[in-house]
Computed example of a mutant assay.
Amino acid sequence: MVNFELDKLKHTTSGNFFLMAGPCAIEGEEIAMRIAERIVTLTDQLEIPFIFKGSYRKANRSKGDSFTGIGDEKALKILEKVGKTFGVPTVTDIHESAEAAMAAAYVDVLQIPAFLCRQTDLLIAAAKTGKVVNVKKGQFLSAGSMRFAVDKVYEAGNKRVILTDRGNTFGYQDLIVDYRGLPEMQSFGVPVVMDVTHSLQQPNQSSGVTGGKPQLIETIAKAAIAVGADGLFIETHPDPAHAKSDGANMLHLDLLEQLLVKLIKIRKAVV
């Protein structure tokens, strides 16, 4: 694992935003290492602080037979190997309080899924590990409501919090991003991230498989950087069409470099 200071993410020496990126789920060691190596190469060249993202288990699935993971310990050990091999922090989701200590033994950042951001026991368990806690804003909550999630982590003795927006519910099968929420959550004194790819999901499809609008990834990312987001969250894969989870809204790995170059230019223009 990598020890890193949260303030360095918000106030990077390069002046860039930071990036949380990787596959939706850990599908296997070879592909995780390949994705990580590519992103590390890009972010090192572009001086973008990077946190590798991968879910060791997917607990929130529409259908009972959807892919959920390759095994908790196996996936967590892959995340640990990515961190040690490339010298980068790693982040993964947890879903129940009992998972906090287990995941904390392998990764640097514990992520609270959007649907679980009000679960007090889960937030407290994550906080008590001493790890950075990334809380995703619920699709059903206002930005202002996330103050209470921050308070719960703080009151448990942990001041290392990130908030991540991932859009708001807009009808039954779509999400919309309210960019007013980014500066509002920044007013709480924590780094704020825009989850670009999940904001483009189209949930609750009749097929039982979540859809998406990946053609709008650049649009959402550009707007977030222009507004002043501290970081971006982007799920990426070398073959999204065959990814085992959330392929419909992921960015093709080959497109990441050109996107980041454009975003850096916007960042420099607005800072």
Rank of each mutant, 00 (worst) to 15 (best):
L9H: 09
T219Y: 13
V135C: 12
V192K: 04
V40E: 03
V40I: 08
E99F: 03
E73L: 14
C117M: 01
P23M: 09
T120F: 07
T90A: 09
A114I: 04
F148W: 12
R180P: 03
L255Y: 12
T13A: 12
D254E: 15
R267V: 09
E218T: 09
A149P: 06
A126D: 09
A98T: 12
I225M: 11
P183N: 08
G171V: 00
P203F: 01
V196A: 07
G189C: 07
S245N: 05
S55G: 05
F17P: 04
A36L: 10
L175S: 06
G15I: 10
E5S: 13
I31S: 04
T210I: 11
S206C: 07
D254G: 15
I112C: 05
D65F: 15
T219S: 12
T90Q: 12
G87T: 13
S55M: 03
R118K: 15
V107C: 03
K262E: 15
V107T: 00
L19T: 02
V109W: 00
K10W: 06
R118W: 01
S142W: 05
Y56W: 12
E218H: 13
K81S: 05
E27R: 09
E73S: 11
R57N: 15
R147I: 13
T85M: 09
Y179E: 07
P240G: 03
L122G: 08
L259P: 07
I48E: 01
K84H: 02
I70G: 10
C117G: 01
K244G: 07
P49E: 10
L19I: 07
K128E: 15
A36P: 08
S142G: 13
N16S: 14
E80N: 14
V2S: 08
A59P: 02
G228Y: 09
D178M: 04
G144I: 06
Y154C: 11
T236H: 08
H11Q: 11
K74W: 00
Y172W: 12
I35W: 10
K222C: 15
L263F: 10
G83K: 06
G64Y: 14
V109T: 01
V227K: 12
F140W: 10
R38Y: 09
P203I: 00
E29I: 07
T43Y: 10
Q258P: 14
S142D: 01
E96T: 14
Q205N: 05
K10S: 13
T43V: 07
N60W: 00
L46A: 12
T90W: 11
